[in-house]
Design a protein around this nucleic acid. Structure first.
Length: 260
DNA sequence: TAGGCCATCTGGTCCT
DNA sequence: AGGACCAGATGGCCTA
């Protein structure tokens, strides 16, 4: 939410409660008409449940089914309202906490944060986070392996050439924020999702246009990197970009669209 | 205008 | 018993 400037947040909990209570008050006095943008806030919805409570206690569609008939009869309409509002409030808080956690996850993800960049959707955030973790794990494994080789005196250290030494190719390429940190990467969300979406494509050559980095980025040829140890079976297809080498998802239909 | 994304409500289930 | 969690339904907002 913090980086999202194109969307307006829904009314906060206090507003919802205020609108609901106002609607209830109006309903009692014969109110008719729309009040809120949300379903349950509409005086034609929640009051309907409450009306059913007052008009027919044996109706199976009664709200607050968790209450026994005895309890329902003992509770006044206002008490039932209070319970329902309390439950709704808890649920809103729960979802709000979930969104806060999602925002926290977005903050550490390697994509551009700013007013001009649309916020990652929830599903995109989760998919990207998974990819990111897999990439970091793989890089760590490669670093460990190369360090072991260095200690054994098998590899000479060098940078930039074919014999790049014990630095993971991914790090040398600088395609992910292991060196500069997430805030230094300005990845467009669209390009990130393009990576996840094109799972069935196969890199034709190592100079393929990068779908992770900023549009137009083309990486110099590199030898293929083994990602076979990354990800679940069937998820081994890679980004055509020789920088990223990201494992991809096996279900393109589950990958969300990312509007500009 | 269709589709994607989201917030909210709601009822059911599980857990403490 | 009360709260957490979940999924379905619904409707609003936004973009292509």
């Amino acid at each position: 939410m913090d980086s999202d400037t194109s969307r307006v947040s829904r009314p906060s909990s206090p507003d919802v409660e205020r609108i609901f209570l106002a609607a209830m008050k109006k309903t009692v006095h014969g109110f008719s008409g729309a009040v809120s943008s949300t379903q349950g806030d509409s005086p034609t919805d929640i009051p309907a449940d409450l009306r059913s409570l007052s008009s027919n206690d044996d109706d199976d569609t009664l709200s607050l089914k968790m209450l026994s008939k005895k309890d329902r009869k003992l509770l006044s309409e206002n008490e039932l309202q209070s319970i329902r509002l309390k439950i709704n409030s808890r649920e809103r808080k729960r979802m709000h906490d979930l969104n806060v956690a999602m925002d926290g996850l977005r903050e550490v993800m390697p994509y551009a944060h700013g007013p001009s960049v649309r916020k990652l959707s929830k599903i995109a955030t989760l998919l990207l986070a998974r990819n990111y973790i897999l990439m970091l794990s793989s890089s760590l494994e490669e670093m460990k392996r190369l360090e072991m080789r260095r200690l054994l005196g098998e590899v000479s250290v060098g940078v930039g050439g074919v014999n790049a030494g014990p630095v993971p190719r991914l790090l040398l390429a600088g395609g992910w924020p292991l060196i500069s940190g997430p805030s230094h990467l300005l990845l467009s969300p669209e390009s990130l999702l393009t990576t996840a979406a094109s799972s069935s494509s196969t890199p034709s050559h190592s100079t393929a246009k990068c779908t992770i980095l900023s549009p137009g980025h083309v990486e110099a040829p590199l030898a293929p990197v083994q990602w076979s140890s990354v990800g679940a079976p069937g998820e081994g297809s890679l980004c055509p970009c020789s920088v990223c080498r990201l494992p991809r998802f096996g279900h393109p239909s589950s990958v969300p669209r990312f509007p500009k």
